[in-house]
């Protein structure tokens, strides 16, 4: 081995080493940049909620105090007490809980079944029907608002009810029936999206699974129930969480069909008016809240609306994030 080749080898090694160093430096600096970006976006997302949280503990004088920005001087729970009673929280919570659970379970069932039908069976008009699923997403619910309202005010199935009772249908408003009926038929809030998610999921599953089940003599219903459903759990978790959360914070359908029933989303939107009314009734003189105070009450109310959802998310988060990985929603 002569000196030249030793040198060449050395420089070769040196180059490799330098290259390695260069790449590891690029990687490290990228991981720093990435960390900064992600931390920044996380902060951006959390910041408004954190401010709401800190303001919700402030007494009135702290809100006007310019020296107080984030940390209240004399933290108080008084705001929460006022807001909880004005929102009629216990009652509204249970109403919302019942409504959201009922609708999201039903939407989950109907959208899973419908999605499977679109994904795995060939029949005439499938394309047209699926296009109509997309159309139900595009049409603003406001377009259907008045007819639906009248539909449930004078509810009737092909004139049968009016033939029996002799009246113009029955009034289903102020009950959960409109929600049940619409959820079971895949027409609830954003159900087009859920049908789409379930269809994409089932389409991505290997056909061999079902074929094997058929060969083993399982019927179509049994194949669906015992083979497909257990593997569809990740997508179903996604759909369930979406529908639960969106029903929980929805004001559109709940104020259309349940005008006199207290649900959290409605009482939170109205909380500062309610506090004003309560105060005026107590004292007997009309009282007006200053904009800052009424805003504080509304924000505290909105925190109380999402609090149960955040707790739910905390528990379901792992399942949800994992489920995303395996949902495979592909267009």
């Amino acid at each position: 081995m002569d000196i030249k080749s030793i040198f060449r080898k050395k420089s070769e090694e040196d180059r490799m080493h330098r290259r390695h160093l260069y790449y590891s430096m690029v990687r490290r600096s990228w991981s720093i940049v990435r960390g900064v970006i992600i931390a920044g976006i996380c902060f951006l997302i959390l910041y408004p909620t954190l401010v709401k949280l800190s303001v919700s503990f402030m007494p009135e004088q702290d809100i006007y105090d310019v020296t107080v920005r984030y940390v209240p001087k004399s933290p108080t729970l008084e705001n929460y007490k006022t807001v909880l009673s004005a929102m009629r929280y216990n009652k509204a919570f249970w109403n919302t809980f019942k409504l959201s659970t009922l609708t999201s379970v039903m939407q989950l069932i109907s959208c899973t079944v419908i999605g499977y039908g679109f994904a795995r069976f060939r029949f005439k008009g499938r394309g047209v029907l699926f296009a109509l699923v997309i159309l139900t997403m595009i049409v603003p619910p406001q377009t259907l608002m008045i007819p639906l309202f009248l539909h449930f005010r004078y509810f009737d199935v092909l004139g049968i009810i009016s033939a029996i009772t002799g009246q113009k249908g029955i009034n289903l408003l102020e009950s959960y029936w409109p929600f049940v009926l619409m959820s079971l038929t895949g027409m609830g809030l954003k159900n087009g999206l859920y049908i789409y998610i379930m269809r994409q999921f089932f389409r991505g599953m290997p056909k061999e699974l079902e074929e094997a089940a058929y060969v083993d003599g399982a019927g179509m219903l049994r194949t669906f129930g015992q083979i497909m459903l257990p593997s569809a759990v990740p997508a179903m978790v996604t759909v369930f969480l979406f529908s639960f959360v969106w029903q929980w914070t929805d004001t559109f359908y709940s104020s259309l069909f349940l005008m006199r029933t207290d649900v959290l989303a409605k009482t939170a939107a109205n909380v500062s008016n309610q506090i004003m009314k309560d105060l005026s009734a107590d004292i007997g003189v009309d009282i007006y809240l200053s904009p800052a105070i009424s805003s504080m009450y509304t924000n505290t109310g909105s925190l109380l609306v999402v609090l149960p959802l955040l707790i739910l998310y905390l528990f379901a988060q792992k399942l949800f994030v994992e489920s995303v990985e395996r949902t495979g929603i592909v267009g």
Partner: peptide, 20 residues
């Protein structure tokens, strides 16, 4: 299978007509 397909999407068809 086509019949089963209609059966599976039947809820949607009903909802589509009555509520949409």
């Amino acid at each position: 299978r086509a019949m089963m397909g209609y059966l599976f999407v039947l809820p949607f068809i009903i909802g589509l007509i009555t509520f949409f």
